[in-house]
Design a protein around this nucleic acid. Sequence first.
RNA 1: CGGGGCGUAGCUCAGUUUGGUAGAGCACCUGGCUUGGGACCAGGGGGUCGUAGGUUCGAAUCCUGUCGCUCCGACCA
Length: 569
Amino acid sequence: MRTTNLYAPTLRETPAEAEVRSHQLMLRAGLIRKAAGGLYTYLPLAWRTIKKIEQIIREEMDEAGGQEVSMPILQPAEIWQESGRWAVYGDEMFRVRDRHGRQFCLGPTHEEMVTTLVRDEVRSYKQLPLMLYQIQNKYRDEIRPRFGLMRGREFIMKDLYSFDKDEEGMNESYRKMYDAYTRIYTRMGLDFRPVEADNGAIGGGHSHEFTVLADAGESSIACCTSCDYAASDEKAELNVIKAAEEELLPLEKKATPGANTIELVAGYLKLPIEKTIKAVAFQTDADELVLAFVRGDHEVNDVKVLNLLEGAIELRMADEEAIAEAGGCAGFMSPIGIKEGTRVIVDQTVMEMYNACAGANEKDVHYVNVNPKRDFPDAAVADIRMVRAGDLCPRCGGIIKMTRGIEAGQVFTLGTKYSEALRAVFLDENGREKPMQMGCYGIGVGRTMAAAVEQNNDEHGIIWPRAIAPFEVVVVPVNAKNPEQLELAEAVYNELKKARVDVLLDDRKDRAGVKFKDADLIGYPLRITVGPKAVDENAVELKVRRTGEILTASREEAAAKAVELLGKL
RNA sequence: CGGGGCGUAGCUCAGUUUGGUAGAGCACCUGGCUUGGGACCAGGGGGUCGUAGGUUCGAAUCCUGUCGCUCCGACCA
């Protein structure tokens, strides 16, 4: 490919609409252009990278036993009504009607489609396991599209679905996918972590998010500094922290006028914040009141709370009236004196506190010398707090640090949620009818590209990992109007092509500076410069984008040297 | 949907407070000169000032509606 034949409109200045680095760079480097909010055109450079990412994914999916298919993007409402999600999915689903008034949606995901496909064909355990995948556009009418390709309304996704005869098989499929994902992100040259994740409403199964580490990432993850434990902030498990044992003092009320926050109480009573107990009141979607208690310096993890509540779908902050009805007092709450039957959940660490301070369930009054094991021994106890930096790893006891990343892929087991709803059943070895055990596994392809840019750039532009660079090498004749230079550059270019290197010849008649700036901005891993020195001294120059390292080689050696350097990028 | 910010040339922005008839840099076209880090000189093209309405002799500027973009929150690949 020659630059004069490449549509890659680079921008000298950063467009005002882009806030995050990857979005800015992809616009500036001429990779993408916006068509409307959350909708982007992939220009030739971006599309080359997308195709490379897809190819890596395909190879690993096939290797793991997946088979590629292509299912319709336009999906009939019926199958969604059957699974019950037509009503649940809400405004996030794009819905359309055909000329007869029949309803369809633009697929936000394909569980319904793939499950109905499989149920009609698979009858026997002998036909399982089965793994089907596709790479295609998905549509979600996001509340707020943002960060360019990071969260679009149309985005490219690889989605694989596994079908197994039992849980053991499902877990085996899961493991294969986990391993395949690990190879995919490794091959792409990205710094990533498989992160234990909550799989929310589905419950029960496993889930990992494959998170590309980047400071601008949306997800906050807890990583152990000693072992390889990593979990999303809402998932991270925590061990009990035992306070030093103390003699139990008698419970006592103290007036704490206006002290309705933990900071105010601790300040007023001159107590360390670790000696206080904090309350958070929630209500479920069914209006049940739930009181959660954590140590004063901790935060309640509402996902953990929600997971403890059978049947609840979401939590919101409780109304003051509901709290008062249960005998509580907003801002001054404790489990002591709450009406019988009220849902109270106490963090495990709270149970190990001695002579602590908590609300007295009346305005402007707190208790001191609260001893949970004595004062509310019957409360439900669980791990309900949010992880924070400095906590101890639940696996090895090492120190946890918090990092940020971009969730580029996710794997999780679904169990029989969809196979039951859509009656995808088979006969097992004993002739008994059973629902299939499913798993689903997604990779955001465009998001992975954005994450790669987010993770690999400097003040001059993008620095592509070789495996997903739009071109591996750019050959730059310093002065393309000089026939000798151009001829030598073409010779190097042709040799690299022959060596099956993905190479671009920047044959534009612009000044060298322009071409160098573009090369840095677009971020080809390797640049080969052919200038006067090549003509006069037979010396061409190879520059590694990431390190800035410059090597020289003779014209004859240049291609071989480039191939050697690429091997290390 | 709630809360901020912004819509003026392809891009980045000035002009809006105090109404007087459209600007700069970059990009683009022509010619010249130049060719190792976004050159230079000369000439040129390009804007219903997001949009609709109102106030006014006169609106980019003031008022009202509306659309779009963007950031923060709930959602997610």
